[in-house]
Design a protein around this nucleic acid. Structure first.
Lengths: 243, 243
DNA sequence: CGAATGTTTGATCCTTGTCAACTGCTGTGG
DNA sequence: CCACAGCAGTTGACAAGGATCAAACATTCG
């Protein structure tokens, strides 16, 4: 049995976990409601101690941290199916902020229920751990990119990941996927300046490799993009646990 | 009750988790042995499908990824108490390699037992998730550093974290902590070239702020270091879950 | 002793950041 | 209805932080 979107707190990436009827009931008890936020508004704040966890049902956003002097680093973009706020759920407080890019619909869970949920559904607990491991993997990829790739490689790599992710979510239509962020956001995600990001985007566009404008991304030459990005073979996979 | 070092697979950071006697028994069943590796040898390989998980009991090492063309990124340094190999335990395969810097002693667990362990000890499962969240937090810090901080800030920040971590592990003696890596390793961790790393280290040393040589790190002026690193207030904490 | 490995230092180059100005669009209020 | 401010994107000129190249030095090891 597969759980539908709005019933499942652990619907990460494009992965739907099979569950029993009683597990679904437990989920529904755990779930406390839905939340809709407008574009460009903040959902979780660094340093806050939010009592809630969220699954993203619709819309896109980003997670970021800032330095005391104001420099901002986007940790990752978040997509439908992502689980957000686990850190606050499990640690003392959030160590990063989450903000919407467009209108978002979120599934809300009480943090206080998390522990009981684990106790009553050890298999879900395992899944949550699996989910964390996947997230860790993606963050590692990110670190590799920031540390070693050049500006052009970074953007190519980011586009490839975003393209694959949104395609897997079935959000591709007419040869493009929604990516409703500003160039400044991408620049902050990749550790580049706005100006340099802009110029690199222009080059990729002129070369007919990929084009991103008006909130939509089109990958015209995926093979070339992968080449530029120095992508590994079969890097995108990994959606289900083995055990 | 607090579990001793070699009995606990989830002894992360400087955190000892309280457990009941039966939980300890379950742990001991889960544990399968100890492993000692020499310096500069590899423990887990990217792409491998290792049947084992490890807790580090003694020694230091590092986790890294490589690009097809050979560039290497050190994801993080690992210290006694760190849990290693969860990714392979929970995902299809390792997505990074782990290598020892010095001789290391490891506590070995069978990956196959992980799932049953979760089922029988939901509280430990929760702890593992907590542990993952903490790890995620640190990786986020890392991303912030690579994306936004300058060379000098990066090194100051890294020294501060390493210093705090090893101090918490009670490994400080005579005003210095063991950090048995090469300059190339630090450079690869911070996304800098070896040469530039070396010159920046020389500057910090000459300024009497911090000095790292012959495998030992001394922080002479922690306040100045934090200032250079653009460190946030109370960033180092966060060792126990709330719930 | 020579080979290998790691650290140090100087000279030079280049990728990327910074500064500045201009465009196009949108929303707002007089 | 237009003037104007505000914001995102674009482009050029210039500066600089860090990369690269090259060579010397120190240690260890066989």
């Amino acid at each position: 049995m597969t759980v539908k979107c709005s019933a499942c707190p652990i619907r990460h990436r494009d992965c739907f976990l099979p569950m029993s009827a009683s597990e679904i009931a437990a989920m529904e008890r755990f779930k406390t409601g839905e939340l809709v936020v407008e574009g460009r508004s903040s959902i979780l704040m660094e340093g806050s101690n939010s009592p809630q966890l969220f699954t993203i049902l619709e819309g896109q956003g980003l997670r970021y941290k800032t330095l005391p002097d104001g420099r901002r680093q986007v940790i990752s973009f978040v997509f439908p199916g992502d689980f957000v706020g686990l850190q606050a759920g499990v640690m003392a407080e959030m160590r990063h902020s989450v903000e919407s890019a467009t209108r978002m619909r979120l599934c809300v869970f009480e943090r206080a229920g998390l522990f009981g949920f684990f106790r009553d559904n050890p298999e879900r607990g395992f899944d949550l751990t699996w989910l964390s491991a996947v997230e860790e993997h993606f963050l590692g990829e990110n670190i590799l990119t920031l540390g070693q790739r050049s500006a052009e490689e970074r953007i190519a790599w980011a586009f490839l990941r975003i393209w694959e992710r949104l395609t897997a979510l079935k959000l591709r239509s007419n040869g493009s996927v929604p990516f409703p962020h500003r160039q400044q956001d991408l620049a902050d995600a990749l550790g580049l300046s706005l100006v340099h990001t802009n110029k690199t985007l222009a080059r990729l566009r002129k070369a007919q490799v990929a084009s991103w404008s008006e909130g939509r991304l089109s990958v015209l030459d995926a093979a070339r993009l992968a080449e530029i990005a120095q992508a590994e073979e079969g890097e995108g996979a990994q959606r289900r646990p083995l055990l």
